[in-house]
Design a protein around this nucleic acid. Sequence first.
RNA 1: CGGGGUGUAGCGCAGCCUGGUAGCGCAACUGCUUUGGGAGCAGUGGGUCGGGAGUUCGAAUCUCUCCACCCCGACCA
Length: 574
Amino acid sequence: MKTSRFHLATLKETPVDAEIVSHQLMLRAGLIRRLASGIYTWMPLGLRTLRKVEKIVREEMDRAGALEVLMPSIQPAELWQETGRWDQFGPELLRLKDRHQRDFCIGPTHEEVIADIFRREIKSYKQLPITFYQIQTKFRDEIRPRFGIMRAREFIMKDAYSFHVGQESLQQTYDVMYQAYSKIFDRLGLAYRSVTADSGAIGGNSSHEFHVLADSGEDAIAFSNQSQYAANVEMAEAVPGDKTRAKPGAAMKTIDTPGKHTIEEVAKTPGIDIDKCLKTLIAEADDGGLVALVLCGHHELNPLKAEKLEGVASPFKLAERDNINAQLRIDIGSIGPVGLEIKIYVDRSAALVSDFVCGANADGQHYINANWGRDCDEPEVVDIRNVEEGDPSPDGKGRLKILRGIEVGHIFQLGDKYSESMQATVLDENGKEAVTKMGCYGIGITRIVAAAIEQNNDASGIYWPDSLAPFQLVICPINYHKSERVKKAAEDLYQDCLKRGIEVLLDDRPLRPGVMFSDMELIGVSHRIVLSERGLSAKQFEYKGRRDQSASNYELTELPSFLDGLFKRTCKSA
RNA sequence: CGGGGUGUAGCGCAGCCUGGUAGCGCAACUGCUUUGGGAGCAGUGGGUCGGGAGUUCGAAUCUCUCCACCCCGACCA
């Protein structure tokens, strides 16, 4: 491709409303353009990379034995009513009516459609297991789309669905998919982690998320520095650093802490150690009452864990201040477990603190030297906090480190949730009707592009992994339009590269070198060859890899073997 | 949804407070010069100032209204 015939839509200035670096660079490099909030056009350059992601995903899905289909993006309401999700889904589901006033939605996912196809097509256990997949545009009407492609409303997803008789078969395919996903992210050339994840309300035994590691990632991942353990922070079991609780010391005492409500404020009181401070959070109970949750002052509550406790309202909700005032007759900021007459759950770590500091259930007063089992009941110990860096790994090996990641893949076992409500059944070997088990496997195709940039960028722009670069090589001729000799050399090299099957870009624009170079670095072309009068006279060409600090000169006679070396894996045989 | 903010040329912005009919940089176009890291000079084109209504002799500017977009939203007990 010659740049004069391509639409290189680079921008010098960063659009002001692009918040994260991948969004900025995608706009500046001309990969995408915004059409409406959370809705983007893929420009020619961006589409080249997007197609590469698709190709790798498609190849690995095919290799894993999945069958590609393409389902409609517009889906009839009846299917969603069958599973009850028409009502459950809320405003995230974009609904519309056709001219006959029939209800439809734009598919945010395709469980219903695939289950419908399945029940029409598959009748016998002999046809199982079977896995269908598609690469399709989805729409989720996010409350707040942001970060460009990263959290867009319209996006492209690869979604696959497997059907089975029996858990064992499901587990087998799940494992195959896990391997396929690992292969995909290996081939994409991204630093990633697979982590055990929350399988959510759907249930099922196994669930893994695949995260591309990047500091700007929205999810925190905890993993062991000594073992393979890795989990979403929300899911990771919090194990206390201490093993046992020290014996109580001095008697409990009330101190005045006027105006001090937060742990930070209380800890400033002379003689108080922040590690001894416990905080008492009040959550709504499922019967309209309140539940107390006690944690160490510096720990963070994990609402997902808390809402699973008996008596705690689900979804989890901290109680409103007015509600607390009304039911407990105490104001927030001075609540503590001593003498508190509601259900109290205590985090594992908090339960191991002796001589602790806590609210005295009277405004402006705290207790010091309070102790479980002495000044109040022995605690009901639960795991309700987020893990922190340095916590022991739950598998007993090593300590946890925390990294940030961008979720780009998620596999889980649906079990019979959809197959049952939609009667996706087959006849088993006894001629009896059997409800199938389903697996579901998603990859965010468009998000991968953004995540790849988020992970691979520098001051000049994007540096793609080889597998994703929109072009492999750019030829930058200096004075292409003035020097016949440079022009001929560039054209010859260009033709040679095309013959070799290299995805090559010839920058034949009448631009100063600096402009060419910075454009090519911005869009992330992996390799650059410069041809100039000066170089040709010395029988040399110049090469610079996108991430190299500086360029190097090589003899022109070595050019063919140089190209062989650079592209030996990707070239078609000449 | 709640809170905050912004809409002026393709992009980034000034002008608004204090009303007088729109400007700067980049980009684009033409010509000349320049040609190894986002060039210089000269010239040109491009705006119903987000939409509508109102106040006024006169509105980008003041008022009302609608729309679009952006940012933040348990972490406090």
